[in-house]
Design a protein around this nucleic acid. Sequence first.
DNA 1: GAAGCGTGGCG
DNA 2: TCGCCAAGCTT
Length: 321
Amino acid sequence: MHYQPLHDALFSWYQTHGRHDLPWRNTRDPYPIYLSEIMLQQTQVATVLERFYFPFLERFPTLKSVAEAPEEAVLKAWQGLGYYTRARNLHACAKACDGTLPGSAAELEQLPGIGKSTARAVAAFAYHEPVAILDANVKRIIHRFFALASPTPKTLWEKTDALLDAARPYDYNQAMMDLGATVCTPKAPECAVCPLASGCRGKTDPTAYPEPKKKKAVPHHARYALVQLHKGKIGLMLRKEKLLGGLWGFVQQDTAPEVHELLGTARHAYSHFKLTLSACLVEGDLPGCDGWFSLEEIAALPLSKIDETILAMVKHRFETV
DNA sequence: GAAGCGTGGCG
DNA sequence: TCGCCAAGCTT
């Protein structure tokens, strides 16, 4: 209520500086809105926009088409975007609601892969439900606006609810995200042009909020990837653990195989460890594979980034014999 | 509450 | 080369 002047300033700023051309805005179809929210979790707008959003919608025009497809096809469309639990949950969600998303945040939050923030985002953007979101951008603004160094999640949700303009939930939430993304940035926020500055308690020292988190040491693993050849086919395993689960890839082991040809070395930084893989060409029907494929068949399978890198080494090896 | 979970871009 | 960060959810 007493935030009315700030809301007015926010909307005025949003009208001029908001990212109004994003394709998942200006629609009330919950599916593309939901899809964008899932793709954008921990992922930058440019990545989603330039490489994944439109191809995915072309392959799966409706949530019903997702529900009717095999999980592997959804993972293939997700390949390269990372955090593949999102794709598995997207498929599970589509099946759980049979291709029709429910009409409220409370119901959306019951579906797999939809937490409180995503549920509220879809409800606010598709149904104009008066709920506030708390994504990374809004969270940073809330920390600074209320000068909270290390609040509990409960406090953050209370504060984001308190700041909501319930009369305009769509514009309010979009404006807050844009403000966090372009003005109230992690480093060097531009308080001088911020429409919320007059009410912000953290503006004298914005980078003190939130409190910087302690960094942990990132482990580094060195392993061997087996490129197994047998009767003209390549042996791959179907990963079943949480890391890259549902994707196909080369069998890995901690020690070098007895006889092998080194194809090359690939490095990759995952979210919580680093990996160096030495790709070893080995002959014969070794254990550990779930399937044998030609190069053409592999092209249709979902693979992780580092497995694609190794696959490129294999192609190069046999093109230059 | 903390850890696990991908990838790409940037300084 | 490296650390940080980007529309979080699950366990």
